[in-house]
Design a protein around this nucleic acid. Structure first.
Lengths: 111, 111
DNA sequence: TTGACGTGAAACCAAATGGTTTCGTATAAT
DNA sequence: ATTATACGAAACCATTTGGTTTCACGTCAA
């Protein structure tokens, strides 16, 4: 709890996820734990740059690090995305209405 | 279609929504169409600053403007949030699994 | 033990971001 | 006709961001 707050202190999820590189990183890590080099291979930028993106993701609590020998393995943690999900849910009604409208339209059409 | 692409050309939704001021603006506009001054009253910053945030939201397609007399009324458009929603849905499985796990736990408990 | 590998920290840089103040202009009110 | 209101554009500024290169350090391999 206080832990989660501490983890997310520096960067918030919205900002972390705003960058396309970081979104791709999350996708890659979704496949499983990976060391930095394995990740940076997918990008045009330097390994160091990727490393910095990973730090931002870590600050937002979206990834965790684990040292294994000389490599640092990064693992995804989806939890903070729930905040985003919750924020989005506020606007859910719009699509519900649209769905309802669409449904009505289809049903009228069936007559 | 080409319209939507043009609207969203300058700023993407992820970036637009990354700023807390802009998120609050969307909430306020969710209540209904509002002119700039009515909006900027809720913030510590200048009207001009709010105006610039509104432009960014407009560039992302999240708000539209309508001139009425000497005022410009802004209206929210939730459509681009669907992109965010879609991106998030990719990670839905994590929570589904969690829900499933919770469900199993509760069911076991019922025995 | 001597290298090669995997990495983060540091110093640096250009561009973007989020804010300000000042100004011009169109509309509304007196 | 004059004044007040609502606003965007422009110029400006400090800070943040996203990237680079260089360096030092621990770990694995020969």
């Amino acid at each position: 709890m206080a832990d989660a707050a501490a983890r997310e202190a520096k960067h918030d999820v919205f900002q972390a996820v705003a960058d396309p590189t970081r979104r791709r990183l999350l996708r890659l890590l979704d496949e499983g734990e990976k060391p930095v080099t394995a990740l940076s291979g997918h990008f045009a930028m330097s390994r160091t740059a990727v490393s910095k993106h990973l730090r931002i993701l870590a600050d937002a609590g979206l990834v965790s690090e684990r040292k294994v020998g000389r490599e640092t393995r990064y693992r995804m943690n989806p939890d903070p995305l729930l905040e985003l999900k919750r924020w989005l849910s506020y606007f859910e009604k719009y699509w519900e209405n649209r769905m309802a409208a669409l449904k009505r339209y289809v049903e009228e059409d069936e007559e």
